[in-house]
Design a protein around this nucleic acid. Structure first.
Length: 402
DNA sequence: TCTGGGGTCCTAGGACCC
DNA sequence: TCTGGGGTCCTAGGACCC
């Protein structure tokens, strides 16, 4: 019998989610941390072990608050390289489990195991084996949810944590879903939760009872339609292999102390260089550059500019970024800048087909910017050394051979 | 010591085109 | 001269996710 909108009658989507990922890697690599509360991140909490979560530590909580809640906690700085390495090992196991893997982030993926019953067994058997492999081969705890849809599989993995396995049996989706608080719905964050609670809607079941029209009036047409569908367990999205990134970005928090303008400009140059390298490493090009700013009053602003044609050249991207920054100076001087970032969007070109994992292709800067311009002017092979000199407003020749 | 760094999607107004 | 409908693109902002 095929009744659900996803066109499936069996629960064959797995959502696999590593538990407290960064903290688990630290406990794996440092045995003395096992069984103790661990907080990763010295500024804000990037991850907390279950022992630390038991004290109420959450991410992304300010570090000071976390240490007050959990004075016994061991605070360690993040080691992103180690996490990326661990992520690769786990995704290797995912990919050996089924060819249909959709990576969501470093520590999370959907797996479609629908066609594998004869080869590998039932979804529960497959998930059990997957969890065992991740534990023994990668040394990490992972939770898995199984359901007929992505959304329910994701809710199931969250409910099963820590180190759990939970299947939502076909036909019993609403029984599972309706008692849950609205916050469990994918797309309900702090703001939407507040609105829903103010309207007297506390559970998914109550949300389903209101109907799409009322929800759309409350939250807007797209959100209303989306949440109403989820509340009835309608989610026809398939597991997609090799989704292409739609933007890449990089940002730096600056703290609250006053920074000279030149330091901001230098930070922007460094960000552009990183992004240019990542862009070319992924064989992509971009047409729009977005400058992101955050201010001391916690307000935010974005400024963007588009090119006529896509580019992957660091110097062209930097030109746009500097134009945007120049326009934003009054804003920055007035409100104080605590974060500067850049996103590249309207991406074009093929990429490597890899899931969108953060931190990839990013090993510091190598004066790429200078090399770009010099290669164009003097030819690819003629250049062995380059010097990047500062660029100020109006100077249009920032690059000189050494 | 008030808040990291990486993303996705939606909305809305204005310019511009047919 | 004024009015209309339908569409795309650009820019800015906001909510949400891990």
């Amino acid at each position: 019998m095929r009744i659900d909108p996803g066109g499936r009658s069996d629960a064959c989507i797995l959502h696999a989610d590593l538990d407290s990922f960064y903290a688990s890697v630290e406990q794996r690599d440092h045995p003395e941390l096992r069984g103790r509360p661990v907080i990763v991140g010295t500024g804000v909490v990037l991850a907390a072990s279950y022992e630390a979560k038991a004290c109420g530590v959450r991410t992304p909580m300010p570090g000071r608050q976390a240490r007050a809640l959990c004075p016994r906690a061991v605070v360690v700085p993040a080691r992103f390289e180690a996490y990326l390495e661990a992520s690769r090992a786990v995704f290797e196991i995912f990919n050996q489990t089924t060819p249909i893997v959709e990576g969501i982030s470093v520590d999370e993926a959907f797996l479609d195991v629908g066609g594998l019953r004869r080869v590998s067994g039932t979804p529960v058997e497959i998930a059990t084996k997957l969890r065992r492999r991740v534990a023994t081969e990668a040394g990490l705890p992972i939770s898995v949810g199984i359901a007929r849809s992505k959304f329910l599989a994701k809710v199931a993995s969250a409910v099963s944590k820590p180190d759990g396995l939970l299947e939502v049996p076909p036909g019993r989706e609403l029984e599972f879903l309706h008692p849950l608080p609205v916050r469990r719905l994918w797309g309900v964050g702090e703001v939407t939760e507040r609105k829903l609670i103010a309207a007297g809607i506390l559970t998914v079941g109550e949300l389903a009872g209101r109907g799409e029209r009322e929800l759309s009036q409350l939250l807007g047409p797209a959100a209303g339609r989306h949440l109403y569908a989820l509340s009835l367990a309608r989610d026809p999205r398939r597991v997609e292999v090799g989704r292409r990134r739609r933007s890449i970005g990089s940002q730096r928090a600056l703290g609250r102390r006053d920074r000279p303008d030149a330091e901001l400009e230098a930070t922007l140059v460094a960000i552009v260089e990183r992004l240019g390298k990542r862009l070319r490493a992924a064989s992509r090009s971009c047409r729009t550059v977005v400058l992101r700013l955050r201010f001391e009053d916690f307000g935010r602003a974005t400024r963007s500019r588009s090119l006529l044609l896509p580019t992957d050249r660091t110097d062209l991207i930097l030109g746009l970024a500097q134009d945007l920054l120049r326009d934003a100076w009054p804003l920055i001087h007035q409100r104080g800048c605590t974060l500067i970032g850049l996103s590249l969007t309207n991406l074009d070109g093929f990429d490597d087909g890899q899931p969108a994992l953060p931190f990839d292709s990013d090993r510091g800067t190598e004066l790429d910017l200078a090399m770009d311009g010099l290669r164009d002017r003097f030819g690819r092979d003629a250049i062995t050394r380059a010097v990047l000199v500062g660029r100020h407003h109006g100077d249009d020749v920032p690059l000189l051979p050494d």
